[in-house]
Amino acid sequence: MNTPQGASPVTATRPTPTPLAIASLQPELTGLNPDAPVKLRAQDVSVRYGDRMAVRDVTLDVREHSVMAFIGPSGCGKSTVLRCFDRMNDLIPGAAVEGRIELDGEDVYAPSVLPVEVRRKVGLVFQRPNPFPMSIYENVAFGPRRHGEQDKARLDDVVERALRQAALWDEVKDDLRKKSGLSLSGGQQQRLCIARTLATDPEVILMDEPCSALDPIATLKIEELIAQLKADYTIVIVTHNMQQAARVSDRTAFFTLGEDRAGYLVELDETLRIFTNPANQLTEDYVSGRFG
């Protein structure tokens, strides 16, 4: 974790996007490395819920070990696109995904691909912290157990490593089996959910407004965490908080609602450019607060 990204938590503690100006001078350190392989790709992706088109014609790619932020007004399809990458849209009756979603160049929606396998590689952190009503230990061990790990010593290791990675270990190490995941504070619960995801050893972590139910201090901790996790994982985060997008992400995708009430991708660029000098007037209006 002592890679140059160690500097990023500093970025996360500042409320303004200025530190990114420095970061962008060193693209290879910020997840803007143009040589990094493409981890996730959406090609002409449209999602319908029954007759209603939720989001249309989205094409974007996310490079390995980078953080991409999805911003935009409510209902513009950010979460919908996010949930294509781990096929969680499959759970919604009537949802239909068109176009192509790739993970490492492989079609995630190919008939031979099992959603379960996709979700083992692509973790999801939900908007509302949703730990299981079980002990802290069992929460983190849930994924590995379901994937067949039974060895107690190895499970102990995985649980400790995941909790350390999620910066929660020191706060809970004495109560692993004594306390329910639900007895933690909101911010701790969300870090527990992140630890639970990390324990399944994913390659990609999707975060669906992970801080919207948290107070500013808990939010800051999650943002610091994201900056650290970037070294080992590819992260896509949906957020309503534009400062958060500015603080944590390398690139930002701005979505909005079209006249047909379907969401679409307006602009995708380096985060700094989106917030300082966007190409599209709609983006400009949104990031400067003139929207709606």
Partner: peptide, 15 residues
């Protein structure tokens, strides 16, 4: 049982 519990489990790759 809240839908959250199911979604959380499925998102972790459980069948």
């Amino acid at each position: 049982v809240p839908a959250d519990e199911r979604a959380a489990s499925l998102a972790l790759g459980a069948t």
